[in-house]
Simulated assay, not measured.
Amino acid sequence: MQITVNRIARLHLGIQAFVLRSAKSRAGDDMRGVSDGHTDPAVDTAIEDEMTDRQVPDDFPRNQDLGSVTGVQPKLLVREVDGRYQSGPTDEELWVRYDACEDLASQLSAYVSRKIASSGLSPDVALTRAEKGVRLKVDAGEWGFSQREMAWVIKRTRQLLFEAADKSPNKPTH
């Protein structure tokens, strides 16, 4: 199963353009002539709309495992972001991770639906097989999702499958 990265790449470019525009506005004339790679106002508007019209669901995992430091005394792992110390992901980072997970869940749902239709597997069996394949990729380090994000992706995939089954015209009526 091939997972496309177009949406992630588009978001990455959008964030880069957003960051560059923010830096330009803060720096004023110092960055005159610096380009963010495009001049199309429609692209700017689409990026800004996507950047401002987003919400991460409450059940999405928010805390990333930052790591650990050895020693006797307790330590707090933080990083500096825009001049402030932060212990978790920024809103931008959280949203990018959520969007990647939502995209994966959507693709898995479509993949599992095709497998159900073509091989006659039950939804649970097809989803379990897809989950095994995804977990192998994550455990091998090929895909950068945390275990909590993977649990969320599988839960979301199951939701999408049941939503699609409820809307299906072939759904049996009782």
Rank of each mutant, 00 (worst) to 15 (best):
A130G: 08
V138A: 08
S87Q: 13
D82L: 11
V125Y: 11
R156W: 03
W152R: 00
S122Y: 03
V153K: 01
Q147T: 11
L121I: 02
I116V: 12
A100L: 10
S118W: 02
E93T: 06
A151Q: 07
K115S: 14
E131G: 04
P123S: 13
R158W: 04
V78E: 14
A105E: 04
K137H: 08
D103K: 05
V112T: 09
S87G: 15
P123Q: 10
G141H: 04
L104D: 07
T128W: 04
P89G: 07
D91F: 05
P89M: 14
Q147C: 00
S119P: 00
E92Y: 05
G133W: 04
V81A: 11
A151I: 02
V153P: 01
L104N: 00
E102D: 14
L127M: 11
D103E: 13
A140W: 00
V153F: 01
E102W: 09
V112P: 00
G141T: 10
E131Q: 10
S118P: 00
Y85Q: 09
Q73E: 14
G120Y: 05
S109W: 01
D91Y: 02
P123E: 12
D91V: 07
P89S: 09
D99A: 15
E142H: 07
V81K: 01
W152S: 03
G83P: 03
S109A: 15
K75C: 15
R79I: 10
P123T: 07
L94E: 08
K132G: 15
W95V: 02
D103N: 09
R156I: 06
E92L: 13
K75D: 13
T128N: 12
E131I: 00
T157K: 02
D82H: 06
S113I: 06
Y111H: 08
E102L: 11
G133Y: 04
G133I: 06
R79E: 15
A126T: 06
E149N: 02
R79C: 11
G144D: 13
I154C: 08
D91W: 03
